[in-house]
Design a protein around this nucleic acid. Structure first.
Length: 860
RNA sequence: GCGGGCGUGGUGGAAUUGGUAGACACGCAAGACUUAAAAUCUUGUUCCUGUAUAGGAGUGCCGGUUCAAUUCCGGCCGCCCGCACCA
């Protein structure tokens, strides 16, 4: 028996799969389709453990579904545009294109070495001219459909990356990539009209049953749909010039009788028009802008406002007028930029009212309170209750009040029911070189003119200089200056490129819509093929994309659908979504704060020392592998040392897939030992007289017991994969392997068991599985072998063990025939010495017998 | 502040239409093999009761429902994630 040699075996099978084009599909097999996809990688140049885990999970699904009889599309490509390439260009004087493609080549090799069941024939990079040409075509299709527009907008400007960021890309007031404080600038920007689908994107979340609830909640919050009323206040006395009324938005029109002021954003046009003559207003504007997006805690602590001196008429109460304030807590970007304040039932309004000594009039009475004595102290009441002091609304519930108030506003002709969203249109202009050029030409005479389809692609010029100062395209005269397609006069190309999130918003359709190397060049993807494969049945990636990427992709597929490019009625690109946890690793630090590579740390008596220097080090947090913490484990080293199967097995063992998994050297060794054990178990068996696909008919005694174990394990392993709980499948595989190793007879039952084991490990450790399969005399590749089927008869036992409890405490157990009747079980239980000892001197009140489960004797 | 999730041995974790808590693995301990070590194999390993075919306690804490609660309900505590003046 030879020792298992992964370094030899793995490349052998990879070559065999390649030669057989084992994982290339054309959608014409007649089998049901299954589209398995992992979020494609950014070509940083290095494969890391996170990739291994992500793709290992996808590969388990792909190989398993394949074995279950599906034609599985499982493609791979590169999310290749983006700023790191430009940063590298600036720092190392290499061209982004050369840098990116070199990285792709550097990453493809280790990725292939992991032996994933991928259809590499469909590979592409988003920076391929063929790809971005089609992205430009999509841009123009969206333009024609009214899903693209241009406007001057206040934008989030990242001063480090020197580009605009979408709202989603600003995290705590800082750029999501650079971490720099984001500034506000006004620029001409391109937008995708994602708000056109706001309602659909919101409601369709309910049907995404195979998405994590967490992600759906995050998207729901992001879209921020709210129902309310929009209505007008008219001025009491003279109106400011140019304004007839103040339009406000509220979700609580039922509390209108409790209103004591109107508050407006500092940058509301009406307030702006008053600014010139009011120093306090200018001061407020200054304060608001300075606070910007950073110190939210401070903002929260202090409500600021300036009384404009204006007053408005209460719409329902002729005898009442309200003061108009400019206030720092009202946002121009939401609703109408103006609200009415009802301090009793909104905390912000209450804080404001207390500070500026405004009335606090409760109009919603909580259950159990008396209208005459009910007072609001320093907590606003936002719950249910009965309306009072509210004229025609008196006695109504909150919901009824809202409906009635809206009806009244409509009757008065001053307001309507209104749905408002937090979601903004997607700003896609980026002042960057390494991205998809926006196919527009600016002509002084004709305006923004789309580049004619026949002139696509608008290619990125290669002769550019990178000095870190803004967008090189802006300064490339021969590229930038070009004739207008309409009037032929000299015009200028749009120099902005598209946000790279556009690239990843439709790549899955391109994978699906062109077989072999033949992705079409005259359309983004073959409509029929893409429509047949989509939606992706199982999508796997990090939860960090819960809002950005996944929302943009949902928008794109709807746009593609409505442009007639894709037949996907639901508009949903991903039927099932799974967000996997990270790969973490221990980190170590010396006393002077320098991080130490874990491999250079030695442990003695619970203390840690750096090898070589002997310096004492402390164990830091177990956290995500990162270069700065020096706690990175390079998959290449693991593959070299233990093999791809071991790396794959490790990242799938122990931890549930959605949780983080801690990489440990001991665990890696454990996985390696297990792989060796499987090989040893198989290779010490003489399989020459049997076939792994045969089912023994006449097994009895130990052979029958083994068969039962095998088939029960099969059920559990299958469930584990189906339910994305690979760690439980792994545990079952361990257990089964141990049993098979112990079973020394060389008979049909053992070969059957080994055959089942090998097919079950195939999605996890495919190379080892092929080697074992070949040894056992299996026909063809194990990756083509059908998933084993459990025999129902073997899953039930005649003899079962039933625990016996006295007063809920387990005292003993009975081993009985499954068909033992209830009264017989009672008799047997009571006859047990350990039972009688505990019921002695007591009266039996009740005996509960749950067939096949438990017996509980209640006595006191 | 709002929303979501989680809390089980030394460690990762298993068990939920309520039914033997701790499967499986790591680690640790003892033993076998060996001149020795590594590898491998065997046994043990929640805690307490000096011994254990026995008893008691035990799934963050307090309480409830139930013959029976890791699982269901109520209230706390702690940790993680997301959103954050969204009217």
């Amino acid at each position: 028996m030879s020792r298992y040699n992964a370094a030899e075996v793995e490349p052998k099978w990879q070559a065999a799969w390649d030669a057989a084009h084992a994982f290339e599909v054309d959608g014409k097999s007649g089998k049901p389709k299954y589209y398995a996809l992992e979020m494609f990688p950014y070509p940083s140049g290095n494969i890391h453990m996170g990739h291994v885990r992500n793709y290992a999970m996808g590969d388990v699904i792909a190989r398993y579904k394949r074995a279950c009889g599906f034609e599985v599309l499982h493609p791979m490509g590169w999310d290749a545009f983006g700023m790191p390439a430009e940063n590298a260009a600036i720092e190392k004087s290499v061209h982004p294109k050369g840098w990116t493609y070199a990285n792709i080549d550097a990453m493809r090799a280790p990725l292939k070495r992991l032996g994933f069941a991928l259809d590499w024939s469909r590979e592409f990079a988003t920076c391929d001219e063929a790809y971005y040409k089609q992205q430009q075509a999509i841009f123009l299709a969206f333009w024609d459909k009214g899903l693209v527009y241009r406007k001057t907008a206040k934008v989030n400007w990242d001063p480090v990356d020197m580009t605009v960021l979408a709202n989603e890309q600003v995290i705590d007031g800082k750029g999501w990539r650079s971490g720099a404080e984001v500034e506000t600038r006004e620029l001409d920007q391109w937008f995708f009209k994602i708000t056109h689908y706001a309602d659909e994107l919101h409601y369709a979340l309910d049907d995404l049953e195979r998405w994590p609830e967490k992600v759906r909640t995050m998207q729901r919050n992001w879209i921020g749909r709210s129902e309310g009323a929009q209505f007008k206040f008219t001025f009491d006395g003279t109106a400011p010039e140019g304004f007839e009324e103040i339009e406000v938005y509220t979700t609580r029109p039922d509390t209108l009788f409790g209103a004591s002021f109107v508050a407006m954003a500092y940058d509301h046009p009406l307030i702006k028009s008053l600014n010139a003559e009011s120093a306090p207003l200018q001061e407020l504007a200054k304060t608001c802008m300075a606070m910007g997006s950073t110190a939210e805690a401070i903002e929260k602590a202090e409500k600021l406002g300036v009384d404009t001196g204006l007053r408005v008429q209460h719409p329902f109460d002729p005898g009442k007028t309200l003061p108009v304030y400019a206030a720092n807590f009202v946002l121009m970007g939401y609703g109408t930029g103006a609200v009415f304040g009802c301090p009793a039932h909104d905390q912000r309004d209450l804080d404001f009212a207390r500070k500026y000594k405004l009335d606090v009039t409760p109009v919603v009475l909580p259950k159990g309170e008396d209208a005459n004595t009910y007072k609001i102290e320093d907590t606003a009441y936002t719950g249910e209750g009965v309306l009072f002091g509210s004229g025609f609304l008196d006695g109504m519930s909150k919901v009824a009040g809202i409906v009635a108030a809206i009806a009244k506003l409509e009757e008065l002709g001053i307001g309507t029911k209104q749905v408002t969203y937090r979601l903004r249109d997607w700003g896609v202009s980026r002042q960057r070189y390494w991205g998809c050029p926006i196919p527009i030409i600016h002509c002084d005479a004709c305006g923004a003119v789309p580049v004619p389809t026949k002139d696509l692609p608008v290619s990125l010029p290669e002769d550019v200089k990178f000095d870190g100062l803004g967008n090189p395209l802006e300064r490339h005269a021969t590229w930038k200056n070009t004739p207008c397609p309409k009037c032929a006069k000299l015009a200028r190309r749009e120099t902005d490129t598209l946000d790279t999130f556009a690239d990843s918003s439709w790549y899955f359709a391109r994978f699906a819509g062109g077989q072999g190397n033949g992705q079409p060049d005259d359309r983004p993807f073959d409509k029929e093929e893409a429509s047949a494969w989509l939606p992706v049945d199982q999508y796997i990636g990090g939860v960090e994309h819960a809002v950005l990427h996944l929302l943009y992709a949902r928008f794109f597929t709807r746009g593609l659908r409505d442009c007639g490019l894709l037949d996907l009625p639901s508009g949903e690109p991903f039927d099932g979504l799974f967000t996997q946890g990270m790969v973490t690793h221990a980190s170590f630090k010396t006393e002077d704060g320098a991080w130490v590579i874990p491999a250079d740390v030695d442990e003695k008596d619970g203390k840690f020392f750096e090898l070589g220097t002997g310096k004492s080090v402390t164990k830091g947090a177990v956290e995500k592998m990162s270069k700065s913490k020096k706690n990175v484990v390079d998959p290449a080293d693991i593959i070299e040392g233990y093999g791809a199967d071991v790396a794959r097995w490790f990242v799938l063992s122990d931890s549930p897939p959605e949780r983080d998994v801690e990489w440990t050297e001991a665990g890696a060794i454990g996985a390696w030992r297990f792989a060796s054990k499987i090989w040893a178990t198989v290779a010490e068996t003489d399989a020459s007289d049997f076939n792994p696909l045969d089912t023994p008919q006449d097994a009895d005694g130990e052979a029958l017991a083994l068969r039962k174990l095998v088939h029960k394990a099969l059920v559990k392993v299958t469930e584990g994969i189906d339910e994305f709980r690979f760690n439980t499948s792994v545990a079952q595989i361990y257990e089964l392997t141990n049993a098979l190793k112990k079973y020394k007879a060389n008979d049909a039952s053992k070969i059957e068991g080994l055959g089942v084991l090998v097919r079950m490990i195939a999605p996890f450790m495919p190379h080892l599985a092929e080697e074992c399969w070949a040894y056992l005399g299996g026909i063809g590749f194990v990756c083509d072998a059908p998933w084993p089927k459990a025999e129902a008869a073997l899953l039930v036992d005649d003899q079962i063990t039933i625990p016996v409890q006295v007063n809920g405490k387990r005292r003993t157990e009975l081993v009985v025939s499954k068909s033992t009747p209830k009264d017989e079980l009672e008799k047997l239980a009571l006859a047990e010495p350990l039972v009688s000892a505990h019921i002695e001197g007591k009266t039996i009140r009740k005996i509960i017998v749950v067939p096949g489960r438990i017996i509980n004797i209640v006595a006191n």
